[in-house]
């Protein structure tokens, strides 16, 4: 901190950062080693092999490839539906004089803050009675339902900051509520939608507890749940376990690097403002 040259700063931060990323580097190295190399020389030995075996096993017999496709089928519709429905609610609550709108907004937010444990058992029962237990639709539905409150709250804050003159002018020109929503409000919300989209993608993709609550069939499990199953099946095949966890980490890491700015502003939404 002191001294303008910054030598002291880098002397502390560089090793610290290296220590921070060391576990990731180690996992990457293990993932590219062969099983024989690891058994023979130990997992922490200097690598004497380079192979994609770990990855091909993880994606093939370890079924991470299939799980990845399932996760995509869950994450994409869940993110789109979440943002669509929450933008509906946020639009109604921010632009119209709905009685008790603040109470509604805070109640919706409170729903998102509940510990999921209080929902697990009844949610699996609700899915059964809807006849969708053990389907990907159920997983999409619970992700949308549980996330809505937070997304609505954030979008509401943003929509309220859009000047009333804009929508007023459109209204005088004869635009109805739906046109105003679609042509004026939503285009202006693009930055916060991007931020929430990046955030929602990682949350939904990374989820474990809802997947193991509403799904039973092993062949339907998304990435995180499949990863834990794989871990049970390849107990000491550290190269396979490491490769599989990298496969599971890559999509969110891509979202993170592609939307880094959005991602960070998304994290800050609804927390500090």
């Amino acid at each position: 901190m002191r001294g303008k040259s910054g030598w002291g700063f880098h002397a502390v931060m560089a090793p610290l950062t290296l220590l921070w990323v060391a576990p990731m580097i180690f996992v990457v190295v293990v993932a590219f080693r062969s099983f024989d190399d690891i058994t023979l020389h130990g997992a922490s030995a200097f690598p004497r092999s380079f192979t994609f075996d770990g990855f091909s096993t993880a994606l093939g017999t370890g079924s991470m490839g299939r799980a990845m496709w399932i996760s995509a089928q869950v994450t994409v519709p869940a993110v789109i539906l979440s943002l669509l429905l929450s933008s509906f609610a946020a639009y109604a609550l921010s632009r119209y004089r709905i009685p008790g709108r603040r109470a509604i907004l805070l109640t919706m937010l409170a729903g998102n803050l509940l510990p999921p444990q209080i929902l697990l058992i009844p949610v699996s029962r609700v899915m059964e009675s809807l006849g969708i237990y053990d389907t990907l639709g159920a997983l999409v539905l619970i992700h949308v339902g549980f996330g809505l409150g937070f997304y609505t709250f954030v979008l509401h804050g943003f929509m309220r900051s859009i000047p009333a003159e804009l929508t007023e002018a459109a209204r005088i020109d004869g635009a109805g509520p739906v046109q105003i929503y679609a042509r004026i409000i939503m285009p202006l919300c693009r930055p916060s939608l991007a931020a929430l989209g990046a955030l929602a993608t990682t949350w939904i993709f990374n989820d474990l507890i809802w997947a193991i609550t509403v799904l039973r069939t092993e062949a339907k499990l998304p990435v995180t749940a499949a990863l834990l199953n794989l871990q049970g099946g390849y107990v000491s095949n550290w190269n396979v376990v490491a490769a599989a966890s990298i496969v599971a980490a890559v999509p969110t890491a891509i979202v993170f690097f592609a939307f880094q700015k959005h991602f960070v502003s998304g994290l800050l939404m609804g927390s500090t403002k």
């Binding site: 990682t202 599989a244 980490a249």
Partner: peptide, 12 residues
């Protein structure tokens, strides 16, 4: 950005 499950396995 890693899931908690991935973090768990990284550390295992």
């Amino acid at each position: 950005v890693f899931s908690l499950a991935v973090t768990g396995l990284f550390w295992r």
